[in-house]
Design a protein around this nucleic acid. Structure first.
Lengths: 207, 207
DNA sequence: GTAGGAAGCGGAATCCACTCCGCTTCCTAT
DNA sequence: ATAGGAAGCGGAGTGGATTCCGCTTCCTAC
């Protein structure tokens, strides 16, 4: 079956005890602060101070702000990726490629919807940064499975480009689109790539 | 015919003489520095110093780094937008919507290809920042003209999302895609949205 | 139990984008 | 010509991410 690298939790193992405790302290502090004031009003200093830790520690652990943010989100992603690979259809194996793609998009966008502000404050991009490799792969497998005669890698780019947190926020906040419209749009994009004529507009074909 | 707001050049008129000369000085200095060292190695300070101008002036004039960058590119865009609205087919009026869309994408990507590093250093996004309104509108008109039964606004988002400079750089540099592959991909995306079956892969149907 | 060195730590220093504000320069209306 | 005030100016100041590096703490091998 599919062999995807799950978002790896940095299980201690090679990690020194004090380091592990610091990581935890930082994550806890960051979660609390982000929730309390919104990520865009929290500086790395703030987190360090709240965690009683120096800047060096934060950066040794997480690399940069994007890294910290991703670590914060990794739990959601681990769960989601697990459902993707091992869960029930339509997200998990068993359903036809198109259904799985739709389920994936709706799920991913739902998660993104929760975290877009935090992500936007950090500035990363899903297509480019780290742990989303698994998603690219998943999409690739399903698109190929569907048999459409397309440049699959480019299709993946288009499918993930709209996962940009800034774009998502723009649609949701500036333009006031309901999440469902974004999700429907994404599913329509999938259908386009698969060469499926035109879901005759929301007769609620799926979901 | 189409009524698009061209990228307005800040024609003096209301602008004081000293201000105009400073603007020019800044643009010249920025162009030179960006070319010389690459935009990512040039700070706003550097530009101000080279232009013999204070920071206040730079920011009064251009708002922020994205603004400065856009001003630098505005000439290319003005020309391109003019061709779009008044030029010859297939980019200009006269050709069928699909041809015009393809020509638009190829042209836009060609420009982006020249300026992606500069844009990436500034951090803006075409979908979100300023003068690209005209492009959104243009795409909207053509997509509607084509008669496809789609969520045109969402389609526009997908079409412009891949104009992100970071994504473009990623494809061109990290993945080493030739520009033409990106352009072909974009045209295929258009065709998908238009419900055009599958250009049987590069038999060079258009361009 | 302990020495040694790798891994980790703290926080000051650096680099930058962007803001603030008192001073200066245009340009227009007299 | 020229006064008045709006528009513009410079550059120090602010806040935040990220880096640097000398010091400390683990933990392993004896």
């Amino acid at each position: 079956m599919e062999e995807l690298p799950l978002a790896e939790l940095p299980t201690a193992q090679t990690e020194r005890a004090d380091a592990a405790s610091n990581r935890q302290r930082i994550l806890t502090a960051a979660t609390a602060l982000f929730e309390e004031r919104g990520a865009e009003n929290v500086s790395m200093q703030d987190v360090a101070k709240a965690a009683c830790v120096g800047m060096g520690t934060m950066y040794r652990r997480f690399g940069d702000r994007v890294g910290l943010t991703q670590a914060l989100l990794s739990e959601s992603h681990r769960v989601f990726q697990d459902e993707m690979v091992r869960g029930l259809p339509p997200l998990g194996p068993g359903a036809p490629a198109r259904e799985r793609l739709h389920a994936f998009g709706r799920g991913y966008l739902a998660i993104l919807d929760d975290h877009a502000p935090t992500l936007a404050a950090a500035g990363g991009h899903p297509l480019l940064a780290g742990p989303e490799e698994a998603y690219r792969m998943h999409l690739g497998i399903l698109l190929r499975e569907s048999g459409a005669a397309i440049d699959v890698d480019y299709a993946i780019v288009t499918l993930m480009a709209v996962f940009d947190s800034r774009i998502h926020l723009h649609l949701r906040r500036e333009r006031d689109w309901p999440l469902e419209r974004v999700q429907d749009g994404w599913c329509a994009l999938v259908d386009s790539w698969l060469g499926i004529p035109v879901a005759p507009r929301p007769a609620q074909a799926d979901r």
